[in-house]
Every structure is written in structure tokens, then in C-alpha cells.
Design a binder for these strands. Sequence first.
DNA 1: TTTATAGGTCAATATTATTGACTTACATCC
DNA 2: GGATGTAAGTCAATAATATTGACCTATAAA
Lengths: 144, 144
Amino acid sequence: MIDLNRQAELRQAIELLFHAYRAFTAPPDRILEARGLGRVHHRVLYFVARSPGTTVTALLGVLGVSKQALNAPLRQLVEAGLVNSRAGTQDKRSRHLSLTDAGAALEAELSGTQMALLEQVFTAAGPGAEQAWRALMGKLCAPG
Amino acid sequence: MIDLNRQAELRQAIELLFHAYRAFTAPPDRILEARGLGRVHHRVLYFVARSPGTTVTALLGVLGVSKQALNAPLRQLVEAGLVNSRAGTQDKRSRHLSLTDAGAALEAELSGTQMALLEQVFTAAGPGAEQAWRALMGKLCAPG
DNA sequence: TTTATAGGTCAATATTATTGACTTACATCC
DNA sequence: GGATGTAAGTCAATAATATTGACCTATAAA
């Protein structure tokens, strides 16, 4: 009896997480789609923003895709003037990736919608709830 | 200055949500992959479990895919003995979907890993934190 | 100078989705 | 009862996106 109730609560929590994540990813997806960009482009923008000067090989490792799969989206981003690809000074074989101003602006827009959403929700919930939420999500990442 | 700090906190929250969601979906993905099943199969199992007797058309609406895209995965699930597809008694054109015992067992296994993870995390965090988490995730689904 | 590495490309293939056109079976309406 | 509509399923063509494998250039390092 009690267990079934708890099970129902946990199922609700599953749905909550699913829908919250969808609501969270929908705004960036819409912005990207309007530019003809997809998830791969987003991930590239994201990682290059957080690791300016990173190389193509490093990006391949982080994204876990093949060189051929990365090539097309990355070229599109460079051609669209969103990402800089400069040969290295020490090792001229490597290409160092960074965001252009336009790329940084787009990345800020994408992250910005998500930060605004979180800020709104955190503000409504109060600082204690935010702390509890962070602790819980952290445990979810590294349970045990 | 203060704003930049807050921005960094919100960026952390973005990463937290991303990684928590990945940790949350990884175990079912592994179980499904071992059976040669993908996300579509999972979603079918999920919705059929929650709406036993639902029809193909209803499922198409919920999943938001084309009839042709659903056909192959659904047929695989039926052939694998995980989903029942019975003609309706009132309207014999329609097929009513439900899980077989094996299908229900698999669905329980998939949901079970997620419920166990949530229960573990909720228990560690305490009931107050769980309540705060639920409220916050609910607001994320329907902000405003 | 040989060998290894970073990046890039071409080709073939696989998966998974799409739309459109069509068929079968059945229901419903007049 | 006959026209029309609907549920399900299928065939074909197409598109997007991924894969592996082979190969190339340029450059670095042993």
C-alpha cells in the first residue's frame, strides 16, 4: 500500500524530470532551428565557448563523434562566421577553435534563455529551494 | 560583479541539469541497447504501459512521428513478444496496444532503475529537499 | 630521413526519419 | 445498400546524419 503510493510518487518524479528537461531545451532548439543549426552545432558552440583555443581532436574526444561527422557542422559554423579556426603557432598542424563575436553572441543567446528560465524559477522558489535542488541534482549525477 | 557571480552559478545549474539528465537516462539506454532497442521503442513501452488499450493513431499523436516511422519499431516490439496488438471489439479496424508480461517486465525494469535512483537520491536529501525539488521542477515545466 | 600526428576529404554504407500514394478492412451516414 | 470516411499498414522515393575505411597534405618529432 505505502509502497505503491511511493512508486506513484516516483513515477511522477520521472515525468517531472522528463518534462522539465524538455521545457529547458526547447528554447535553444527553436533558436538553432531558425538558423538551420542542430544539436551538434550547439554542442560545438558550447564546448568552444568553455574551452577557447581547443583543437579539433580535443573536440572529437569530448563530443564522441567521428571526424567525418564533425567536419560538416564545424565547417558550417566557420563559414557562417560563428567559429574561428586558426592554425597553431607552435604546432601548425593543429587548428585552434574559438568563437567569433557573432558566435559568442549566439552562444550567449542560447545559454541566456536557459539562465533566464532558471533564474526565474529559482527566484520564485527561494534560495533554500535552490540549494536543495542543486544538492539533489548533484547527487543524481554522482549517486552513492 | 555580483551579476557575473550569479551568471556563473546559473551556468553551473545548466551543467547540473544536463549531467543529471544524462545520468538519469543512461541506465535505461544501456538496457535497451543490449536488446537492440532504441528510444522510440522505449517511448512506445512507456506510453503503452501508462495507457493500456491505446490505439496506433493515439500513439502517433503522442509520439509526434509519422505512421511509417512508428511502424517498424512497433512491429519489432510485437514480434519480440513485448507488445500485444489486438483488433478492437467495437471498431475492428483499430488495434489496441498493451504490454505482454515480458513487455511489462521490461518496462518495469526500465522505470525501476530510474525510480531506484530517484529514491536513493531523495532519501539521501531528505523529504524537505524532495518537496523543494518537485516544486522547482514543476515550475520549470510551466514557468510564469 | 623515417615515422607519427593533426586535419581534412572521398566513397560506400547504414540508420532513421520524412512525404506521397496506395490498399485493405471496416464504420458510419444518408 | 451504397457513398464516403477512417484505422492500419505498406511501398517507394528522398533526405539527413551517422558510420568505417582509405587516402591525402602538412608538419612535427625521433
